[in-house]
Every structure is written in C-alpha cells, then in structure tokens.
Computed example of a mutant assay.
Amino acid sequence: MEDWQTGEEIPKSKVVVIGGGTGLSVLLRGLKEKPFYITAIVTVADDGGSSGRLREEMSMPPPGDIRNVIVALADTEPLLAGLFQYRFVNGAGLAGHSLGNLFIAAMKEITGDFVTAVKEISRVLAVRGQVLPAANQAIVLKAEMEDGTIVVGESQIPKIGKKIKRVFLEPKDVQPLDDAIEAIREADLILLGPGSLYTSILPNLLVPGISKAIVESHAKKAYICNVMTQPGETDFYTASDHVNALYNHVGTDLFDTIIVNNAEIPEAVLERYREKGASPVQFDEERLKKFGFDIIQDNYVIYETYLRHNAPRVADAIAALLEQK
C-alpha cells in the first residue's frame, strides 16, 4: 500500500494469529482485507481423517489445518481454492483425502521439508502473509481427565465424554519453529483464537517457547473468545472459564484484551446446536472484569449454515485496537 501523496510504501502492521480449525480460517478471511502483514501460526496436533493418515503413512506433520489457513489467506481464483479443498469420495486409498493435503504431502517429498513445502505452496497461491506450523514435527496431544483417565490423540479427546483437567504434548521437548518465534517478537498485535480451546489453541501455546515469546512481546495481545461451546471439550464453559483454562495451562499475561460476543443467539439456531450438545459461551462480564484486561464486546456472530464469527466486524475491531495508542 502506498501513500497517495508521497507514493512511498506504508508499512503494514504485523499481526500474528495463533490457533487452528475452522474458527481461525474464518477470522483470516476478514483480516486479509485489512492492511496487515499476517502470520498464522497453526497447530500440528491433528491426528484424524486425511491429516492423520498422511501423518502416519508419510511421517509428516498433519497438513489439514495448514491447508485451510492457506486457502483462507490465498489471493487466488475461487476454482483453484475449491480444487485445493476438494475431498475424494471414491478410490482405494484416495477416499477421504483432500487434494490440498496430498499437494502439501507431495511438496514435502519434493522439497524434503514440511516448512519449506508450506512456504512454496503459499508462494504459488499468493498467500497474503505467511503460514507457519508451530513446530516442524507432528505433536501428540494428550489429555488428563478429571477422573485421572489419560486420552491420547487430538481427535479422541472430545469423544471420551469426560471433563478435561489438562492437556499436554508429547514429545515434551518439541522445538518451536524459529520463524514463529521471530514473528511473535516482531508483531504489533498477537491474536489468540478463535478455535477449539484444548485441541487447537493450547497445542500451539504448549510448544516450549511460544507462550514465553508472547509474554515477553511488547505487542498488543488479544484473545478472541469462541461463540459456542464444543461438545466433549468445553461443555457449559463461560468466557471466563476459557480464560481460566488458558491461564492454568500456560500462565497469565498472555493477552491484555478479550474480544467477546454479547449478542443473543436466535432460538431456532440454538435448537439446532442443542441437538449437537453445544450452547452459547456465556458472556459473564463481572467475572471477566476481575482479570483486569480490556473487554471489547459486540454482536460478533453471523449465521449461515453454521454459526460463525462475523469476520469483517471482528477485523474492524482488531483494526481499531491497533490504532489505539
């Protein structure tokens, strides 16, 4: 972007977004329309579906969340984006795989390195910013339930039907990606979420060095709270329960602002989610105030097939936050 008077390049604000899953992809579609240089740091703990199969068969980090983020940030033709997301329904060995996952796997084989593969694909698809895995290896996510049960695997944790006490990684000494740490250190704003609390956001923050870099950063930092609870993961959680879980796992000082939806969800929409065991994340304002951070509240939801964050409105709130002195 150039200054219309001087013709000089205007430096873009550097925004780091940390998470995974559908929530992150939705947010990025709104953010990429702003004059930001975006770095998305994405979890590599997925072990289900196509990603899980490629992870096991090709000894590589799972590509699914990375694929979704690349598509969200890509400046490419809709047909090419749709092709990248296409999932095969037939074919021995092909059924269930997305073409994008196979593309990433092939590029990893050609370049010899997963991170290099992601960078090359990002270049080909004209990604606005950069997409980085939190680590250059697959991570096994484990959960200890309140009754002491240990559940192994990101995809299995929500299925067990018990309250989560804590999640942790194996290997414990997994190394963070140097580029991810550097991006955090250089950021003007760091965003956590939205996304699955225990299986998308925390797997990034539990990588040694990631949380430390966030705490030490002088950037503005915000947490975007989920709109709905997730069955088997955050049942009946309020906004402050989400914050408590983050603090209990990786300590305080991770963010100074929370962005939270305060709008009521239409009853017809609620009924559909009740059938799946989900409910709105309650905005418990008084409890949130006790944490001492700034609260940005508004109607941040939009309903299409599913309830999602209103990406343009959230992006506007983030842009306003960056402009504050």
Score class of each variant (00 low, 15 high):
104 I>A: 00
41 I>T: 09
119 K>C: 04
277 G>A: 11
6 T>M: 08
324 Q>D: 08
67 R>P: 07
183 A>P: 10
185 R>F: 00
119 K>H: 14
27 L>K: 03
59 S>M: 13
60 M>R: 08
126 A>M: 11
79 L>H: 12
20 G>D: 04
319 A>V: 02
118 V>D: 00
2 E>G: 02
54 L>E: 07
134 A>N: 12
46 D>M: 10
205 L>Y: 00
105 A>P: 00
279 S>M: 11
255 F>C: 06
77 E>Y: 12
284 D>R: 09
160 I>C: 05
98 S>L: 00
284 D>M: 05
17 V>E: 02
141 L>H: 06
216 E>L: 10
15 V>D: 01
263 A>D: 08
58 M>D: 07
264 E>M: 14
67 R>S: 06
104 I>T: 02
165 K>E: 12
290 K>A: 13
151 V>F: 10
252 T>Q: 13
260 V>K: 01
298 D>V: 11
291 F>A: 03
303 Y>I: 09
25 S>R: 06
11 P>R: 14
239 A>G: 10
38 I>T: 00
232 G>A: 13
239 A>L: 01
291 F>R: 12
217 S>V: 07
279 S>A: 14
283 F>Y: 15
46 D>L: 07
255 F>M: 08
103 F>N: 01
89 V>A: 13
70 I>V: 14
311 A>R: 09
136 N>I: 08
48 G>Y: 09
284 D>C: 04
37 Y>C: 11
14 K>V: 03
185 R>G: 04
30 G>F: 05
27 L>N: 02
227 V>W: 02
215 V>N: 00
150 I>T: 12
254 L>N: 05
219 A>C: 07
20 G>C: 09
125 L>G: 03
195 G>S: 11
176 P>A: 04
315 A>D: 03
78 P>N: 10
78 P>L: 05
253 D>Q: 15
240 S>D: 08
308 R>P: 08
202 L>V: 10
269 V>A: 07
210 I>Y: 00
11 P>S: 13
2 E>L: 15
154 E>Y: 06
212 K>R: 13
25 S>E: 01
223 Y>L: 05
98 S>W: 02
51 S>Y: 09
83 L>I: 14
11 P>N: 12
65 D>L: 08
76 T>F: 11
82 G>N: 15
125 L>P: 04
90 N>Q: 14
321 L>N: 05
284 D>F: 07
172 K>I: 09
102 L>T: 10
88 F>S: 06
80 L>V: 13
245 A>D: 06
296 I>T: 08
144 E>G: 05
245 A>W: 00
8 E>M: 13
194 P>S: 10
52 G>K: 05
154 E>I: 06
231 P>D: 11
248 N>R: 14
75 D>P: 00
200 S>L: 02
207 V>K: 02
83 L>D: 06
301 V>R: 11
238 T>P: 00
171 P>R: 11
259 I>H: 03
233 E>L: 06
